[in-house]
Amino acid sequence: MLSLTIDGKKVEAEAGWSLLDTARQHGIDIPTLCYHEAVEPFGACRLCVVELKQGNNSRLVASCVYPAEEGLEVFTSSEKVNSVRRWILEMLLSECPASREIREMAGQYGVNTTRFEVKDPEEQCILCGLCVRACAQVVGANAISTVGRGAQKEIGSPYLVPGEDCVACGTCVTVCPTGAMGARFERVRGVPSVIMARPGK
């Protein structure tokens, strides 16, 4: 067992646990968006950042991917941590304002409005990539991926046409933290050959 402190509390962790695993095991809450037990951690949403202090040095790490180490001093809601979370949530409010989950989470951090321009009031997708990873790692279908880069990035099937690799299992819809995949499902859903005969083939 490894021993470390989280928010001043001494806790133990098994080798191989992440800081997030350790915190949750001890009932310490850390918010996450791109994390799900069913798939490999991704470290993308950065909501789960925590502050590591070593002497006078401190840095932020994503707790979902950072391993528990002996003697670490971890802070889950320091001012530095909360500032990053508030900024991410405020930016998400402008990026996907239709998401109730994001509005609620932002509210918990005192972020109720956004100073940034809302581009699409209907948007819910936060681009956490959970749908993509569940499709690859849980279903094994690899039917969808992120398409494009940076601000142009979106979730889609190859060439943005409904693909034959999709078995219409709905795992992506289930795993989606904001319900965005429900609205997109028809755009990626294929016609599973095992269930239905494909017309013309």
């Binding site: 991704f42 470290g43 993308a44 949403c45 950065r46 909501l47 990053v84 900024w87 991410i88 930016m91 998400l92 990026e95 940034f116 321009e117 936060i126 681009l127 990539g129 992120t146 494009g148 880069r149 940076g150 601000a151 142009q152 990035k153």
Partner: peptide
């Protein structure tokens, strides 16, 4: 950098365009 950000992590994907704006 906005053009070249991979878009994986949120602070970079969302934050860099906001700085530029």
């Amino acid at each position: 950098l906005e053009e070249e950000s991979c878009g994986k992590c949120f602070p970079c994907r969302l934050g860099v365009p906001r700085l530029r704006e």
